[in-house]
């Protein structure tokens, strides 16, 4: 029995190496993108599913009422910051200790259609966390 080996040239070796390297780079890039996407959504979801402060938003006339139902860090909550899609700035409001609800007066004034409303909490240690992200239909 005769065993024959096929001889590989230097050029072929370089070509194979190049393919392997490019494939590895692509895999790393794609993996990186997916990982960052996953992590960002995980951070949002985790932030919402494990509420430091449990709250609920609803529109009453021209006001937006934020009802506070507790949560493990509710006593540390000092400020609420609301951002309505399409508006430039966040509106920050003090949260009195033990408050059951906080009213953003006139926050819905003139607003129509559907908009995403983001509510963040600022705690006594300065930490800023997403508490609620919901679409409200103003009309």
């Amino acid at each position: 029995m005769v065993i024959r080996y096929k001889k590989t040239t230097q050029r072929q070796k370089h070509f194979i190496m190049a393919i392997i390297l490019s494939t590895a780079v692509i895999i790393i890039l794609v993996g990186g993108v997916f990982t960052s996407l996953f992590l960002s959504s995980y951070v949002i979801e985790k932030s919402l599913e494990d509420p430091d402060v449990l709250l609920h938003l609803n529109i009453v006339g021209d006001d937006i009422v934020v009802e506070i139902y507790g949560g493990r860090r509710v006593n540390e909550l000092v400020l609420l910051s609301m951002h309505i899609e399409g508006q430039e700035s966040h509106v920050v409001i003090d949260v009195p200790h033990g408050a059951r609800d906080v009213v953003y007066y006139q926050a819905a004034s003139g607003l129509t259609g559907s908009r995403m409303v983001e509510m963040r909490g600022i705690f006594s240690n300065g930490e800023d966390k997403l508490l609620s992200l919901i679409t409200l239909k103003f009309t």
């Binding site: 529109i59 006339g61 004034s109 607003l111 239909k137």
Partner: peptide
């Protein structure tokens, strides 16, 4: 006059609801 913010004793804005229904 704009009546979007006008509410009844239950906090219901009739005008917002009318617009929503019409749309």
């Amino acid at each position: 006059t704009n009546q979007l913010g006008k509410t009844n004793s239950y906090g219901m804005s009739g005008v917002r609801e009318v617009i929503s229904l019409a749309q």
